[in-house]
Amino acid sequence: MRIELAGVTKIFTDEKKVLDNISFIEDFKALAIIGPSGGGKSTLLRIIGGLISPTTGDVFLDGNKIIFDERYLIQHRRQIGFVFQAKGLFNHLNAQQNVMLPLVNVHGYTKADAQKIANRLLARFGLSADKHKFPNELSGGQQQRVAIVRAVAVKPKLLLLDEPTSALDPELTGEVLAMLNELRYDGLNIILVTHEMGFAKKACDKLIFIVNGRLAEYGDSERLFIRPHTAELASFLNRVLEWGI
C-alpha cells in the first residue's frame, strides 16, 4: 500500500503544533511509527484513521485523497480497522458480540453470517473458549486479540494500531505480536505505533520516526536501525535499545 502525507499539520486548541508539516511518501506492508512519547504519534495515526482531521495538509492512501468531512470520513473509517492501546472493546458486549457488532450494524451481514465469521476468527486466534466472556473477564492480551479480531473481521484494507501492547506484560505482548505477524503474512497492510523495537525492526518493512511533531527520519526499517542518518534517531535508538532487543 502507498501512503502519502503532504504538509500535515495539527494544532489543537492552543497554539502548539502537535504535528508540524509532515510530508512523506512510502510503499509499505507494515509501517511502524516510533518516537518519544508526546511527540504526536497517536495524533498522526488518528488522522490517518479519519478519527480526527488535520488543521492543514492532505493524506492519500493508494492515491486516494482522504476528504476530511464527516460524511466521507464515516466511509473511510469503515474500510479501516483501528485498535487502541487498551479498553477499546465495548464493555457491555462479550467477545463474540464485540466482533459481530460492526459486521451486522455497519457492514450489513446477517446475524448468522456474522456469528460464523466471528467464531471462525476467534477460533483461529485461540479465543474460542473466551468468546462468551465480557471484556473485564478477559486478560489484557485477550482483550487486545479480540480487539484485533473485531478490526480485521470486516476485511479492512488497512489496520491501524496505537501501541497495542504497551499495557501488556512481555508474555502477553508476545501473543499479540505473533497474531499481528500472522495477519501480515495474510497480506493485511498494517500501520502501528509501537515501542517494541524488535517487532519494528523484524516485522515492519518501513519506519517513520517522529519527534516533537516533526518527521525526523523515515525509510526502510532495516536501514534506520543499522544506519540512522540523524543524531536524534541514533540517540533515541541508543536509549531504547540500551539493554538490547
Binding site: L51, R77, G88, F90, H92, P102, N105, V106, R150
Partner: peptide, 20 residues
C-alpha cells in the same frame, strides 16, 4: 474510549447512542 471505538468501527451518531 467507548465512544472513540464506536467511531472507529464506523457507527453513525444515532447508532452509537442506540448500540453503545
Amino acid at each position: 474510549t467507548q465512544l472513540e471505538a464506536a467511531k472507529a468501527v464506523g457507527l453513525e451518531a444515532g447508532q452509537t447512542l442506540r448500540l453503545v
